[in-house]
Amino acid sequence: NKFNKELGWATWEIFNLPNLNGVQVKAFIDSLRDDPSQSANLLAEAKKLNDAQA
């Protein structure tokens, strides 16, 4: 379904953000699993944090 596809894509993108540490990645992935409907918002937050830590 739509959420599974978005969840998978967001998970892959978060895993590939180079400036996040393992704890941050795990926290974002756990949040995605808790509420897949928020995948776009969580991915945006992860990208912002990644950019801030560059």
Rank of each mutant, 00 (worst) to 15 (best):
V23L: 12
F15Y: 14
K5W: 14
N21Y: 05
A40P: 06
D51E: 13
A46V: 02
R33D: 03
L43M: 05
L42W: 03
A27L: 13
K26W: 11
Q53W: 03
N16K: 11
G8H: 15
A44I: 08
E6D: 12
L7N: 08
Q53I: 10
N16P: 01
Q38V: 04
L20G: 00
D35H: 09
N1W: 02
T11K: 10
E13C: 09
K48V: 11
P36A: 04
G8T: 14
A44Y: 10
S39Q: 08
G8F: 15
T11H: 06
P36W: 06
W12A: 11
N1F: 04
P18W: 05
L43V: 15
N1L: 11
P18T: 07
L49T: 03
A46W: 02
V25P: 00
W9Q: 15
N1K: 05
L43Q: 02
A44S: 09
L7C: 06
L20N: 00
W12D: 10
L43N: 02
N19A: 07
K48G: 06
N19G: 04
S37L: 06
F28L: 06
E13G: 03
S39T: 14
W9H: 07
K48W: 07
A40D: 09
D30V: 09
A46I: 03
N19W: 14
V23Y: 14
P18Q: 06
T11M: 15
L32N: 00
S37M: 07
E13H: 10
A10G: 05
N41C: 06
F3Y: 14
F3N: 05
L43G: 00
I29W: 06
L17V: 00
D35W: 05
P18N: 06
N21D: 13
E6C: 11
K26P: 01
Q53L: 08
Q24E: 03
A44R: 09
L7G: 03
F3D: 08
N50A: 03
N19T: 02
K47R: 14
L32H: 01
P18F: 05
E13Y: 15
A46Y: 06
E6V: 09
N16E: 03
I29Q: 02
A27S: 12
N41W: 07
E45A: 07
E6K: 05
L49N: 03
S39L: 11
A44Q: 09
S37Y: 06
D30Y: 04
E13V: 15
E6M: 05
W9F: 11
L43F: 07
K26I: 09
S31Y: 08
Q53S: 04
S39D: 02
V23K: 12
S31V: 07
E13N: 04
N16Q: 12
V23S: 14
L20V: 01
F15V: 12
A27W: 15
E45Y: 11
S37I: 04
D51K: 09
F15P: 02
A54G: 12
K47T: 04
F15H: 09
K26S: 10
K26F: 04
N1M: 06
E13K: 10
L7A: 10
L42Y: 06
D34N: 15
G8S: 14
N4H: 13
I29H: 02
F3K: 03
G8K: 14
A40G: 08
F28E: 01
F28H: 00
A46D: 00
R33S: 07
G22V: 12
